[in-house]
Write a protein that binds this DNA or RNA. Sequence first.
DNA 1: AATGAATGAGCCTTCATTCAT
DNA 2: GATGAATGAAGGCTCATTCAT
Lengths: 218, 218, 218, 218
Amino acid sequence: MSEDDTRHRILLAAGEAFAETGLHGTTVREICRRADANTAAVNYHFRDKENLYRESIMYAHSAKVTQFPMPDLAERSSAEDRLFAFVLTMAKRLLGTAEMTWQTSLLFREMFQPTGVCRELVEDFIRPHFKMLKGILVELAPRELSPIELHQAVFSVIGQVHFYKMNRPVTEMLVSEEMLDQLFQPEEIARHVTQFTVAAIQQSDKSDLELPNPSRLS
Amino acid sequence: MSEDDTRHRILLAAGEAFAETGLHGTTVREICRRADANTAAVNYHFRDKENLYRESIMYAHSAKVTQFPMPDLAERSSAEDRLFAFVLTMAKRLLGTAEMTWQTSLLFREMFQPTGVCRELVEDFIRPHFKMLKGILVELAPRELSPIELHQAVFSVIGQVHFYKMNRPVTEMLVSEEMLDQLFQPEEIARHVTQFTVAAIQQSDKSDLELPNPSRLS
Amino acid sequence: MSEDDTRHRILLAAGEAFAETGLHGTTVREICRRADANTAAVNYHFRDKENLYRESIMYAHSAKVTQFPMPDLAERSSAEDRLFAFVLTMAKRLLGTAEMTWQTSLLFREMFQPTGVCRELVEDFIRPHFKMLKGILVELAPRELSPIELHQAVFSVIGQVHFYKMNRPVTEMLVSEEMLDQLFQPEEIARHVTQFTVAAIQQSDKSDLELPNPSRLS
Amino acid sequence: MSEDDTRHRILLAAGEAFAETGLHGTTVREICRRADANTAAVNYHFRDKENLYRESIMYAHSAKVTQFPMPDLAERSSAEDRLFAFVLTMAKRLLGTAEMTWQTSLLFREMFQPTGVCRELVEDFIRPHFKMLKGILVELAPRELSPIELHQAVFSVIGQVHFYKMNRPVTEMLVSEEMLDQLFQPEEIARHVTQFTVAAIQQSDKSDLELPNPSRLS
DNA sequence: AATGAATGAGCCTTCATTCAT
DNA sequence: GATGAATGAAGGCTCATTCAT
């Protein structure tokens, strides 16, 4: 009990710290200080700093999944509704509730430059979500999409949502504060991305754009 | 001449190393080993490890800008052409030429968690590009967009392109190799994103989607 | 127990080393080598090299004070006796017992060019001794001395004793060895200084010397 | 010319710096910065940092000797006059003119813990002065002094003067500022030391003090 | 089960010095 | 003759980890 307590406190503190300063920028001492635990506690409970990093990522993800579970999409009538629900859940997980954003920051770090923990997450969580989104978009499309087209559509959805997690700091330098608050509301993000995506996909039976020969652009 | 040579070699080596393992995960010794320079060379030429980090980011960006300059958009006839040219340049800068990807990795690290160098980049380069993209999308829209809508459209474009930089590792775990090569071609990315965006925006005079009450979805 | 042991060994080794080569001339590695301790032990036990320096000075002084405590002067019948006891204690502390001279060497370094530790020593120990000596000399004087005269007398006593600590190396080059042993005996020093001082002060009711006009001597 | 100029500027800067922070506490770069010379200039003109140290000590001494030459004592009528002249020159050299005190600080460092330069100084300058002072005191004494007594008297004179150089910092903590100015005037020091010494020595034909058995004092 | 003391490895940096020019 | 560029060695210090308790 007191054991699990300490272990858990370290897990939380480590997650926050790693999210802020990364694996190498965070010291074991700092983690233990934040967790109000002994310096040796990390090695005792987690064997390694690196192992603690791994476990804190797994924990970060499962915490987010528990906090914002994916709603049962089968219940929803239309593909648009399902897309909206999916995107909204994603946005909430990413932007979360104010101070609880470290989990996804940590995950992003790992996605961008995987240390090995990533693979596990991909198999357990990301691949299912990936398939789920593909299913929604297939339904949404007015004609059968090629595998390439389908992937591109999926990437476009995910990319649009991820933007809000990745570029918060830079956006703060570019946009007025009042607009920021509105733009970064998960519901508003979900609404826009859904609308944008639906509109784009439903146009996909129209003929392709005629674009200039890209040969000599750069 | 040997002066600038060593300095330049360190700058390159540092960029690569920082891109791989970040500021804290990279040691001065490793940088100097890669650059085949003395351990004290970093302090001699750049005073600080941190200052070297700053300079290597500035260098990374300017190298990319030089390598893939933004073409003169005024010459292009249509807004679509201009959007395509803009996105293509962005994609080329991000995905670059095979092994030369460290520069943008480094920049992404900095954007995600700015250390202060970022602000300078934002003012000098990102803000102009941001405005340029806004201009293109205003032209593209069939009706006048609200500031919020305009920002959301801009974010959607950028988010779609960034996806390909951010999620390469994860995507490799999800998609077959042959498809990967096709999906990550800058021209193909630019084609898709342009088409997707144009389609979405030109639908924006249609009535909003009627979405379910988002109150109890999570 | 092993805890205080290491700490104490470092304190001793540091004192010796600092006395020999000063703060800047002494390396942490050398101290730890002498103390047969790990290189990190200094930072662990004393946080800083500079803090170790400070603590080693405080220790050096308290060690000397413990080794040669000031006897209870109130018991002594005459002012001369008291002066002798005072000077003898001072001489013993300064010249100590053969190999244990590093403490005062260290203190002299600090007195000559204080680093801040000095101030504490002055308030705690030197000022009381200073007053004590003033009291003795007041008693000794045949008439009431002016504040200036009193200070000068005090300085003359201290200066005479300090000579033996300061100039041992130079004196060794000037005086035969057999004479050295005799001259540097604390008892002999105390005897001479007391006699010299008593004689001088008791003459102080005589009229001042008539000295030549010092205007053009240099 | 420009050569000697640089060399000389370094010699001056080095003396000041060494006096302030000692051999190890002073960096070659700092010296060259003060002398407004190239970093390599020290090695070029003086071969070594240590050799520069040696030369700066020699220079410091000769500068003081030139600035305050010992007056021709043979001209003076009485032994007291000669003692006064001797002590005054010594005091002036030690306390000098306000900002020009670094030379003697440097010399004191060297006297206290000789690095080898000292020996030369002793033979060339100190031994002659030592003999000179012995001669004066012999004249002054009312009876023939034993070699030991004579040395002790010499030491007492030197010690009294040295006090004012050694203990300025500590004294500043103990004595009011107005008194300080008066006490540290070379003329006043010479007056007091001469008077104190003459009085003490002229009493030396009186019977020795009867001092308590020093056996059990500590 | 849990921790305070201690450590070896390695960090960034500074130093006096050298060398080509 | 004199210097700016560069360097090998060493400095103080911090780190993750271990170990006796």
